[in-house]
Amino acid sequence: MQNLSNEVWVFIEQRNGKPADVSLELLCKGRKLAGQLHGPLKAVVIGEDVKSIAADTFKYGANEVLLIQHKELKNYRTLPYSRILNDLIIKFSPRIVLFGATVIGRDLAPRVASNTKSGLTADCTELRIDSITYLGKECKDILLQIRPAFGGNIIATIITPDNPVQMATVREGVMELAPLEVPNKTKITEISFLPDPTDALVEIIEQFHQENIVNLKGAPVIIAGGYGLGRTNVFTAE
């Protein structure tokens, strides 16, 4: 395989104009991976009126944003979102594409991987670029995708040696959130979106959201107890 791309892409998940934490965490990780590949980190931002999200991504290391805005794209829907990514990936063939392992990421990434015939590894706990030998073949600067499997009883390192595009999903809170001290220069490439009749095959009738009341990730101390404690009031701090 010749002339592999050195671009790393992160799909930025958003709701009501706010980027998901996991997407920003992935930008921080993607920045390191892109650095090792000597390539750019690009954020793919899809939605309605999401330019401010695009601006946010430069604080976390994006070098360029691929921005797709349309009123039909306000809420995530599998068919239009996957069509956009399929077209972009087939056109630009990035080396790595990262998604949050959220309900959206786990709905979208496999559909895109299938369409673009890319390798996809779910729920990675670690991502690393390294050169390895696989079945006697030198694989230079390949993405090592490390994840638990078999109900957590094994830790597997997955690679995609023969494909141009390597994809992975990562859960929220796994990668460290580390904004840049000086944000990157802004570079936004707007890409047009043409609605398609197939977009209406699945319509959203209603949505209900309840924000997490307890923010475990932001808590300085977490105290956990087993079933043997019996009651919750034993946790009362003195």
């Binding site: 890319s118 996809l120 590894t121 009883n153 094994i154 830790i155 997955i158 690679i159």
Partner: peptide, 13 residues
């Protein structure tokens, strides 16, 4: 299959 298992480490329980 584009994805290959390069290495498996067992978790010691």
């Amino acid at each position: 299959s584009p994805t290959k298992v390069h290495k498996v480490e067992s978790v010691v329980l």
